[in-house]
Design a protein around this nucleic acid. Structure first.
Lengths: 149, 149
DNA sequence: AATAAAATTAGAATGATTCTAAGGCTATTT
DNA sequence: AAATAGCCTTAGAATCATTCTAATTTTATT
């Protein structure tokens, strides 16, 4: 008898690492979550829309429904594995970088670019209204294509 | 014969002031635009959604369609009379304050609060990617209800 | 007044996201 | 290792903000 094939390009080691990550976040380990987590987290930080992740999943041979992609993104976000970035009224972006940081956004191109936290210096903040605490401070630098002369 | 009734609570003076404002922004002066402008600009700065403005219009006796409200908000925004604020994936807010400034946002309450530009000090910004210019810098401070002890 | 151009409209269409309720897995209990 | 309960996943429908369409109405011009 042969040992079980690691599915897709997920090695046992990767599966174990992701399973630990899901478990630590309080999420049950299931095949769709494992495979989506792999797509999300395999290549450093990235920004992804639900639609793009669904396409990517299908391209990689994973048969998941749209609902699962949305559920998973929302769960990952609630569990602190992803951050939702709100820059475009049309679509939500999910950011695999959950550290404090900021963004460039190129309106016309629907393109998000990370800015390291220490590249922006927000020196002074106003007091929050009474009864409210700061959850987080978001800096979004909206960019235009420069006119070339 | 009597002089023509000023419609609704718009005095001739207000109508003239708003007409000038629309004209200066390159927009034709029409009754719906004049009346919506009045609702938007009569009471200092405010944040409004399309839905809220439509309700307000109807409540004030102005019979406009949803399409006109959306068109007008978009045109006012394109003309620089309003600013669109993107904080919530569900809904767009329009801000009558077009000066440089920032926002508190209370997630659970869908409530936007202006922060004067000089109350936030963004001391240092990263260089923009080559070929792009900064359009504007947005600071959003997301708030939580503080736990009372 | 007649004409042309832009505004407004009702209602349909769109598109992202969420919901439903039915069936499939996972983990737990015997 | 069966039985059970609870969470997951799913297809497809539903929702909701926003945009579009094509026709009508206003506004400005001739």
């Amino acid at each position: 008898m042969t040992s079980p094939q690691p599915r897709a390009d997920l090695t046992e080691e990767t599966r174990n690492r992701l399973a630990t990550k899901l478990g630590a976040a309080g999420l049950r380990v299931t095949e769709p979550r494992l495979r989506l987590a792999h797509l999300l987290f395999r290549h450093g930080n990235r920004h992804v829309t639900a639609e793009a992740l669904l396409d990517e999943a299908h391209a990689s041979g994973l048969r998941v429904s749209q609902a699962t992609v949305y559920n998973t993104l929302n769960q990952f976000q609630a569990a602190g594995l992803l951050r939702q970035v709100q820059v475009d009224q049309a679509r939500s972006y999910f950011d695999t970088n959950i550290d404090v940081h900021h963004h460039f956004y190129v309106e016309g191109e629907a393109r998000l670019i990370d800015i390291a936290a220490d590249a922006v210096d927000v020196a002074r903040l106003p007091d929050s209204p009474a009864g409210y605490d700061v959850d987080r401070v978001e800096v979004i630098i909206r960019l235009d294509k420069s006119d070339r002369s």
